[in-house]
């Protein structure tokens, strides 16, 4: 039973479900919510790569999300640029800003890094809010175009955009999966585990952290650009710390430093929020304490909790086995 819930099966099931989802429900609104969840997931994966695998908690990610969204918005609305060119540029612009921020931010550690990025996030938000001649300030940016056709494929209805976002999300997951399960992923974990130790075994911690940071902001920018073209309207609020905290909540509930955590956390929170519509602005009355309790009792979220439980289960089984014969545990449970 436990063996069935391994990484591959869970992901395959989720993929199957998300591909079939539009056929299960004909409800446009549900489709809208699902697409939005996928977009958040991309951002959460960005945050996870950084906070989960190198241990650096960035509180500036809503800022990078907003940079991606505004870059796309401004390039298409004000510069009248081709959509896909603007889309690529939006991701690149975000990464370049990420590179410069990372160069300085990553010289700081722990609390300083968190505070520093929190301030960077706030600067980004304030600049968007106040630079009215460029961003239209609090009025927001309207009339952002939907993705333009790719060959014969048009993105003129909710269903096609759903599949576009899903495709990009799957690509992101594939990329993250491959990174995490490679020498690079081990390197990042070594850094999270102990930077001093990583440095003594010859790892250039700065170079690796910077790579992850830039990649992480790239994902945030990608999510932002998708958001802008999906919602078609953006305001400075998408860069506020509230969004960073939302992303963080999704990540923590799902499981920080786990591969499937961002999916699980985002889906659960977004759908629970839908059910708690009447709470709307007060949903943090529930999610705030949930965040705090999780970090005290289940610091690795739902997925981490399941993995730990499976470890225990596996070990029990192994112990039983090794009583009879001296076999090596042949299969180890992989990190969730």
């Amino acid at each position: 039973m436990a063996a069935f819930f391994n990484q591959r099966n869970v992901i395959a099931l989720l993929v199957l479900f998300s591909v079939a989802f539009p056929f299960i429900t004909q409800n446009e609104y549900f489709l809208h919510i699902m697409t939005l969840s996928f977009i958040w997931m991309i951002g959460v994966y960005g945050l996870n790569l950084l906070a989960g695998y190198t241990g650096y908690l960035s509180l500036a990610h809503a800022g990078f999300f907003a940079i991606g969204a505004y870059s796309l918005g401004l390039l298409t609305v004000k510069a009248q640029m081709n959509f896909w060119l603007a889309f690529v540029l939006a991701c690149l612009i975000t990464s370049v800003v990420g590179l410069f921020v990372g160069l300085i931010a990553l010289r700081t550690k722990e609390h300083f890094f968190a505070i520093y990025t929190l301030c960077v996030g706030y600067i980004i938000y304030l600049v968007i809010d106040k630079w009215e001649s460029l961003t239209e300030g609090v009025r927001g940016l309207i009339g952002i175009p939907a993705p333009s056709n790719i060959g014969p494929i048009a993105f003129d209805n909710a269903l096609s955009i759903y599949y576009l976002v899903l495709t990009i999300l799957l690509l992101v997951i594939l990329v993250v999966y491959r990174i995490v399960h490679s020498l690079n992923g081990r390197t990042y974990l070594a850094i999270r585990n102990s930077e001093d130790l990583a440095q003594t075994i010859g790892i250039s911690t700065m170079k690796n952290k910077l790579t992850v940071f830039v990649l992480s902001t790239f994902f945030a920018g990608l999510a932002g650009a998708l958001y802008a073209s999906f919602v078609r309207f953006i305001g400075p609020d998408i860069g506020s710390t509230a969004i960073t905290f939302d992303l963080l909540t999704y990540l923590l509930v799902g499981g920080i430093g786990t591969l499937s955590g961002p999916i699980v956390g985002t889906i659960i929170i977004v759908w629970v929020s839908q059910q708690l519509q009447f709470l709307q602005d007060y949903r943090m009355l529930i999610f705030g304490p949930v965040l705090t309790l999780l970090i005290i009792f289940y610091p690795r979220g739902i997925v981490g909790g399941v993995v730990d439980w499976r470890h225990k289960y596996q070990e029990k089984k192994n112990r039983k086995l090794s009583v009879n014969s001296l076999v090596k545990p042949e299969k180890q449970v992989k990190e969730g």
């Binding site: 906070a51 007060y282 949903r283 705030g288 949930v290 965040l291 705090t292 005290i296």
Partner: peptide, 26 residues
């Protein structure tokens, strides 16, 4: 949380912050 990794107390504090703000609004 006093012996937990440093990332934990920050997240816990953020949870409290979100709660208190929602509480005030409520």
């Amino acid at each position: 949380l006093r012996h937990a990794p440093p990332i934990h107390d920050k997240i816990a504090a953020i949870g409290i912050l979100l709660f208190l703000e929602a509480f005030a609004q409520f």
